[in-house]
Amino acid sequence: MYLNPKIALLLFLLTGCQQIEPSSHEEKTDSNKFKLESVKEDNTNQEKAVKEEQPLETITVTPEPGIEPSNLSIPALEIEASTIPVGLKDDGTVEIPSDIEIVGWFSNGSKPGQTGNTVLVGHVNGFLGPGVFSNLYKISTNDEIVITNGKEEVVYKVIKKQSYPYDQGPIEEIFGYTSKTRLQLITCTGTFNPLKGTHEERLVVTAIAN
């Protein structure tokens, strides 16, 4: 499945001005029913099975436990860093590790290896020098990001790198639920705006678990 961001944007822009006639709830167009002949056979078989009241087999679904991260490594950029869990501050913003060499794992989100968004935040710089993610902007698609807890590891591959104005990041896309096992690395980018007290942009690197 692929969500084309351009199309999503178009949708966003266009739907506002379109007038949609409120039509009846559901209308089926029969002209293009999927042509799967086997479907009917399957259905009759199932009906039989249920009618005969065979005891149903128990199916077990076990969730992925995920790992509590302790270390992050991006071999292509020679980044090695320890991670600590971070939460939300009272003002509703993400707590950032005070040590600019350490990466924060947003523990309200998913654990590495679980479905959902795992979010890691790191400094691009501090007052006196570069932070752990100062080179993150150099990352390329397909670069590997490895997260470990000391024993197990989860390997992600970069699929996207995008910058957003600091006040316009897609919060839902980055922090909301996704059925994919997705990693989001966030740092600052763009020029520092001393009047606003922040960098103009946020860099978001998105990766998917192998």
Binding site: H123, S179, I186
Partner: peptide, 30 residues
């Protein structure tokens, strides 16, 4: 329940809007 594909669950686990940040993290200093 009987047949393929077998029973499975889709679990949608949505963080409460109060556990999501109000804005993008502040990850740089001057």
């Amino acid at each position: 329940a009987s047949g393929e594909p077998p029973l499975d669950v889709i679990v949608l686990a949505d963080p409460s809007s109060t556990s999501m940040p109000s804005e993008m993290p502040e990850t740089g200093n001057a």
